[in-house]
Write a protein that binds this DNA or RNA. Structure first.
Lengths: 332, 332
DNA sequence: TTGAAAGCGCTACCAT
DNA sequence: ATGGTAGCGCTTTCAA
């Protein structure tokens, strides 16, 4: 009767089967030059026969490192976080590091969860509005802040918000729009705050300041709920809100962009099909950069920690129909 | 000068500071009734002072469990996997289990990566076409298969494909369509295979069998490349392909649905704005179910393993404009 | 080249 | 109620 050799075999059993000490097994299975070819062979055979895989726990405990790192994000809705995480995971894999994820959205014990996570990893990437700065600085592992306001002493990676938002509004001004509404809550995320700041900057010389409509979330529904007035340019915190606004406008019989100009942020696939003017972010690159920086921190000489780094990745305006009527050339 | 009390404190230091043994510390910080209120207090104070957090490694090694599980997926593009993973993470968190992720897409050592991951977790959820069955059955931890053909002895969770695809085609038949094209590669994923099967079943009584256009991927580009002929109903393996087809149709001057009917699968946000008829899957529920089942396996009495479970979650046809002209009532 | 043994930080059993 | 201590599985000196 065939037995399923579900490992759980330990280094001791391999040692015994191969007739050597566990030290030799450990070496044979990893080092090179400290073991005879013969011995190595014998050990490997034994290991194979027992379907032996070294215990990560034992190994990590002995080595003093997890060979894993974590990423904390508010939620995973929409392609934004997914893309960031994918870029992160790919880069981390390149360093031989596993990735743990933690979504704080809808969790009341976010801080505890982050602390617990910190105990499982060599370093942590923390995104946006997930936990307060104090938590970050009190962690015992290196941290990289992603899409988050700079934290003292912590590396920070962000996408450009304010400047591109300014460009966006200037584009709308060129279209002749003068009355602006911003939909979204600047306090919900640093990214949104930056966009709102850019909008205000762009309009600081204008007669009428932008009107702010705070929404509870960043989703379709938030956009659908937003009260609409014809003749305004509606700059939304993200694409989902903008798409909600589009839906509401249609329902209200308002034409876009004739009666109402609308813009989003993120360049979701849906934005393309809705003809939504928006802004594209280098999502994967955000994640990959964070992973790389974190790895640098983890492996750096802790006696001489480098000064905290800051990087702002460029974002790109994507002009489509919803911001106003364009000249002959077709924008898509 | 204030010192940053970056923990790395061990249970021994806490014990010493509190003037007790490590056993007492361990108890005071977790158990209840085995420690005086006084002692507990003293220990907690010491722990706080040293910013002590028990080492997960030490704890896991002693307890013989990771309190973590993993999910393996091909890629993270599109909202599908992101949603599944979110549902998974949320459910796992409910069990106090951390989540490790592994994307096999674009990795040549997928099998090794999965084995490595298996060493870090108490159980694993494996999605779709990531690694061969042999790998799954040879792992030393419980596995749940998700969106994957059943593996002997392994719990399987899937979404309904064939039957809903059949319904979809029948709907198209009611519209009067008789010539069908399926775009996507059934060998790329069990889900796609199931949809293709359903299409063929639905047309088994028809004169003309469906035409299969195999695409290299499941993305927009795949759909854009697909050669189009007017007068056909184009059933796509997923929404992204379908949206690509829509784009190509527009470019070719074909009207949808008049010249070409198109359907997708997944009900992306973009599908709504493109008026695409599609199928909705319970993505979060898929993930959550897998997490629950895995937890059951992990905690079950291993002497009496329950028979493998199978579940197929219902999917829902979402009729919009792209499948044909509908009667007066507006479908959206 | 190989073995013995000391940790790594914790839990849990056995005494007291 | 508390302390002592034997593991958990591995890596890595230190000797031989």
């Amino acid at each position: 009767m065939a037995m399923k050799a579900l490992s759980k075999a330990t280094i001791y059993q391999v040692a015994q089967l191969a007739g050597v000490s566990i030290a030799t097994v450990s070496r044979a299975l990893r080092d090179s030059d400290l073991v005879t070819a013969q011995t190595r062979e014998r050990v490997q055979a034994a290991a194979r026969q027992l379907n032996f895989t070294p215990s990560r726990l034992g190994r990590s405990l002995a080595e003093g490192r997890h060979a894993a790192n974590g990423i904390v994000f508010p939620d995973l809705v929409g392609p934004y976080y997914a893309e960031v995480i994918l870029g992160y995971e790919a880069a981390a894999a390149g360093f031989g590091s596993s990735v743990l994820i933690l979504a704080t959205g809808g969790r009341d014990d976010a801080e505890a969860a982050v602390r617990e996570l910190a105990g499982r990893v060599d370093g942590l990437t923390v995104m946006g509005q997930t936990v307060p700065d104090e938590v970050i600085t009190s962690l015992a592992v290196p941290v990289v802040a992603l899409a988050r306001d700079p934290v003292p002493g912590v590396d920070t990676v962000r996408a450009r918000n304010a400047r591109t938002a300014k460009n966006l509004v200037e584009h709308l001004l060129e279209h002749g729009h003068r009355r602006f509404t911003f939909v979204g809550d600047p306090d919900i995320a640093p990214d949104v705050r930056g966009r709102w700041d850019g909008v205000r900057q762009a309009l600081s010389q204008q007669q009428e300041p932008p009107h702010l409509v705070r929404t509870p979330g960043l989703d379709l529904e938030a956009g659908e709920q937003a009260a609409l007035q014809p003749g305004r340019a509606v700059v939304c915190a993200n694409d989902e809100i903008a798409l909600g606004v589009l839906l509401a406008a249609e329902k209200a019989g308002l034409r876009v962009p004739e009666d109402l100009a609308v813009t989003g942020w993120d360049d979701l696939l849906a934005a393309r099909f809705a003809g939504l003017t928006t802004v594209r972010q280098p999502m994967r690159e955000l994640g990959a950069t964070a992973a790389r920086w974190l790895h640098r921190r983890i492996t750096e000489d802790t006696d001489v920690p480098a000064a905290p780094r800051r990087r702002v990745l460029a974002t790109q305006l994507v002009v489509r129909r919803s911001c106003g009527i364009h000249s002959p050339e077709v924008h898509r």
